[in-house]
Design a binder for these strands. Sequence first.
DNA 1: GGCTTTTCTGTAAGCGCTTTCATCGAATGG
DNA 2: CCATTCGATGAAAGCGCTTACAGAAAAGCC
Lengths: 333, 333
Amino acid sequence: MDVTIYEVARRAGVSIATVSRALRGTGPVAAKTRERVLKAVEELNFTPSRLGVSLAEGRHAANGIVFPDLAGPYYTQVLLGYEEVASELGRSVVILSTKGRTRDVHALVKDLAGRVDGMLVFGHTVPGALVAELVGVGMPLVFVSREPLAGADTLRSENTASARALATHLLGHGYRRYAFLGAPLTTGDDVDERWQGVRSVLGGAIEAVPISHYTVEHGYEAALPLLRSRNRPEAVICSDDEVALGALLAAEELGLAVPGDVAVTGWDDIMAARHARPALTTIRQPMRELGARAARALDELITGARTTPQHLVLTTELVFRASCGHHPQEEPQ
Amino acid sequence: MDVTIYEVARRAGVSIATVSRALRGTGPVAAKTRERVLKAVEELNFTPSRLGVSLAEGRHAANGIVFPDLAGPYYTQVLLGYEEVASELGRSVVILSTKGRTRDVHALVKDLAGRVDGMLVFGHTVPGALVAELVGVGMPLVFVSREPLAGADTLRSENTASARALATHLLGHGYRRYAFLGAPLTTGDDVDERWQGVRSVLGGAIEAVPISHYTVEHGYEAALPLLRSRNRPEAVICSDDEVALGALLAAEELGLAVPGDVAVTGWDDIMAARHARPALTTIRQPMRELGARAARALDELITGARTTPQHLVLTTELVFRASCGHHPQEEPQ
DNA sequence: GGCTTTTCTGTAAGCGCTTTCATCGAATGG
DNA sequence: CCATTCGATGAAAGCGCTTACAGAAAAGCC
């Protein structure tokens, strides 16, 4: 964009103040004047510079979002809901993927902070010190998938109760030996809660198998030795669907039938969970709604409609499909 | 952020010009002075306002991206590659999802244009008039998945040749009756090229089945009547993997064996394609690289390293899996 | 007609930075 | 020792807008 408010003003024969007023509808402008201004705007194809407006208004009309990676469907879905609502509220969305790097996260996040009025941060992607700093300068913040912290909103799906329900359900199938594939990398995040939940039910019957990334590949890599071992678990509870898909691949490669030889469950209910064969039993998380809610919460914080932090937990839903074993009562979906 | 360059200057006992120079390393600054400045910066925890910098520099250090929706893995993957490279080049990424709305796209895109130095636009998400307008004001533009147009870069995956190869391969299986599920919605986009490609080989043996959205749901809905019909096609070539997954679901529901009763193929090689059962035969498109290349191309355009538009076509790869029938020579992947 | 309101419009002061230009002292060279 | 150059710094002009503030014109009211 090139043409400025000055040119419009000159062309319409008024001052820039009048142009501004005519365009934003703030303050009175005579009908004829407004008309002249609008005509000039039209002719010059003028669009106010976002930079100028933001600088003068002192706000960006933009939201930030920080996620570790966009590789999986989980973050995508949340982003989707977030962008949708943000855009509804007249805000742009600036994204930042940390991609596991920790070195320049500080600089990147600070840069982002300089471009937005508030941001959504996933789990523990941003180091504590930085979080404190952001909270310190009053940057509106909503965290998704982490334990509550002071000075910012947090928003997450219910994990513990659904984990218990899942574990209980599997016990009902009669399985004795369990593994939790994808042990928590950070305490206080979703996976940690899931692990705590299932362990509280299964106790010593479940073994934690760590992996470094919650991906299909890593799930597969870790599942191979696990399923090969002499004392193979009868049921593998995975930290999320992608890990579970990896486990499914490993089982297939080893010639093991799922759920006949080993049951597998996931978490999140991503698209592939439904299409996998056997289809994955999983716990559906309202991913889009997580994003949408975050955007609204942020808006409240930014506009000042709410000043005290809020900590929300959304409910989840167990989705029984074929991968956890045959159910007399439930039909696989 | 609150503290300005003025406060730093005052604290360090220098002018704001010196602070700026010390911080950006432009122009000479005495070692002692720099030290004082840096100390003040440190103590006040100063970060230059992005707005101020951008306004003065006349650039945003940000890229935009316009996509129809983020629901499917395709756009996500491209976005992933785009963000990665953009961030490498020191640019933020501002996203805009048009979600099928056409009404306010104009305003939204213009707003986006005011926030970035250049943008990636998918297919025909932005109406022609607006495109012309953007090209007119010199906004650097890269289009992904559409036919070349004047004044902007275009970038796409090869479609026609791979479509022919796929069709030829299926002919080799001996199939006689074909359907193309997900007929093109727009001429000149990827799907259109795919359709043209397969038709050029299969001629009258293939029938176009239109759907309104390239999604699992719509694929499923359209596949049901198609597979139920008396003259059921022996092979269903789908416009993309998601549509193909829908077709798979429909076949399953009708009790049809894939590929025994009907062969199904997809396009893109999204994650779920590999995990579906039967696994999908598909054409792999380098989605992340598409995004990465777009970011680099945009950078060249923005920095002025290149001024003439460029039209790139990336190569694709046929991925044979179980869904298209049994292969004597190739092992399913 | 004179006075008070309203309505309309312009002036100008920011918003936070970068960068040109000018200045000034010190270093260099003959 | 003087002329020249160079290094270091500050003043100030933008960048494009919003918005008090104030002035002028129009309108309303006895």
